[in-house]
Design a binder for these strands. Structure first.
Lengths: 186, 186
DNA sequence: GTCTATAATGAGATAGAC
DNA sequence: GTCTATCTCATTATAGAC
């Protein structure tokens, strides 16, 4: 049940943000009463943090897998773009970080710190990918890899935000076209 | 009073999004009762749309002014970056579009259309600036100007989102460092 | 672990006096 | 235009039975 609740909460938060879902929503979808949720997660902040923590752990695994299974930096970067496109594709959802970042004012510092840690994690991964891609000539990297990685994350999150407005995943593609074009495909 | 209410609502929305402010907040800051707000704006959606419409009109003026007063494409692009940095600098606020985009699920189609229109407007402005900058050799423009403009807007909105998480405007600068470096300064 | 019942708060909105 | 008073609804959260 705890896992089911986490799944439903993550889905809801990606779709409508931290402030955009309620215990009532989750309870209905889970088939239990909302009071029962408090047994698993005493407060909504606890639930939000638990969702974000699990999300962070899974992201680490996924980034590691992308690094291992990619035969070039370019292939890894393409996988990262796909990772963010997934959410934008399914009904204008955001990655959990972008979704929760919009509600930073409503959440406590534990969650904000976790968000910051995850962003830094993705930036570090992207930086490593850019360095690899520069080495194997599969990505065009003009400037400092760390700075490039930071701007790429901003672009990916911004592209999701813009796609949500149009309700069209093509908007995400349009906003990341330039990034995708920096990959030299064999 | 109407103008005061619009100002307070815009401020609140940039700071906490559409769902993050209430008539009670605005009423307190304006020094009137919340029932009185309904005289000026029957529903919260009406208020949100009015704020966004005014924002769009002002943005048009500001973009026009930037185009007129800039002596090069690079100078204009720098002005646009500053425009977005302003908000990120003052306490992790977002531009109104980014702030409302996070709450798209909670607003009606009139507002969503207005958001889309404003995004398109900024993209068109950026495209024009890139073309100018490419012509006068003040900006490095590699790909299609329209695609570049779209990704730049995504980057700027994403940079604001990331800066909100760290509560540090330097994060905005880090995420836009690569963009700023594309400007050749005389 | 889940339930019923309820508390406590805050939201947007309306009616009608002044 | 602004007020008081009220409505209706949704929210998170708690107490206590089963």
């Amino acid at each position: 049940m705890r896992e089911l609740l986490l799944n439903l909460a993550e889905q809801a938060m990606c779709a409508r943000g931290y402030g955009g879902f309620s215990y009532a929503d989750i309870a209905r979808d889970a088939g239990i009463r909302k009071a029962s949720i408090h047994h698993h997660f005493p407060s909504k902040q606890d639930m939000g943090l638990a969702v974000l923590d699990r999300y962070g752990e899974r992201l680490v695994q996924r980034l590691k897998l992308i690094g291992q299974s990619s035969r070039s930096g370019g292939q890894a970067l393409a996988a990262i773009i796909d990772l963010y496109r997934e959410r934008a594709g399914s009904g204008g959802m955001l990655c959990l970080c972008a979704a929760m970042s919009g509600d930073v004012h409503a959440i406590d510092d534990r969650i904000r710190s976790a968000l910051q840690r995850i962003n830094d994690l993705v930036i570090a991964s992207l930086e490593e990918i850019l360095v690899t891609g520069r080495g194997d000539r599969s990505i065009s990297v003009g400037g400092d890899p760390k700075a490039e990685a930071t701007s790429i994350l901003a672009m990916l999150q911004g592209a999701q935000l813009m796609a949500r407005v149009t309700m069209n995943p093509a908007t995400f593609d349009a906003a990341t076209e330039v990034l995708a074009a920096r990959i030299y495909r064999g």
